[in-house]
């Protein structure tokens, strides 16, 4: 049932089944382009459960087909995107969401950009401070007023 469809990183793949694009039966698509676009947007955020890393829209697995059809029925029935997504999550859990929800479990995931930026800024800040301090420590000691006067006298003469 698993179909493998795509590879770019490496060539060592055993692609098992031919790559055919997901929607092999156009009659399942909605005639109304606006509704169809909505259905596609919802489906592209849902994971095909029997495949590895494809969306419902991108897969031609049987289950993906059924779920595509359910999405379209519900879109036509006037249910909101949120309701349709919730319907799917109720059945398959948050695993079906390609964009994981923000919850305690995913704090580190969603926080990763902020954490990385803060960490980078902190490293840069401390490195700058240290560099300043070391530069100041190794800088020549400024002349005392006495020495300054002597220097000026020497320069004048």
């Amino acid at each position: 049932m698993r179909r493998l469809c795509f590879a770019a990183g490496l060539a060592i793949l055993l692609l098992q089944v031919a790559p055919a694009f997901a929607v092999s039966d156009p009659s399942e698509l909605l005639a109304n382009p606006a509704l169809e676009a909505r259905a596609e947007a919802i489906g592209s955020h849902l994971r095909c459960l029997v495949c590895q890393n494809e969306s419902i829209e991108a897969s031609d697995a049987g289950l993906a087909k059924d779920i595509r059809a359910i999405i379209r029925q519900q879109v036509v029935a006037g249910r909101s995107d949120k309701q349709i997504t919730a319907y799917m999550v109720q059945r398959y859990g948050t695993f079906i969401l390609l964009r994981p929800p923000f919850e305690p479990l995913t704090v580190l995931l969603w926080g990763s950009p902020v954490i990385a930026l803060l960490l980078g800024a902190a490293i840069a800040f401390f490195a700058f401070r240290r560099q300043r301090r070391e530069a100041a420590a190794s800088a020549p000691i400024p002349l005392s007023p006495d020495e300054q006067a002597k220097l000026e006298a020497l320069l004048r003469s």
């Binding site: 994971r47 390609l98 964009r99 479990l105 995913t106 969603w110 990763s112």
Partner: peptide, 14 residues
């Protein structure tokens, strides 16, 4: 022991 998915929508939005 929980399953989550991280797909293109996550990567694009971050």
């Amino acid at each position: 022991d929980q399953q989550i998915s991280v797909g293109p929508p996550f990567f694009i939005s971050t």
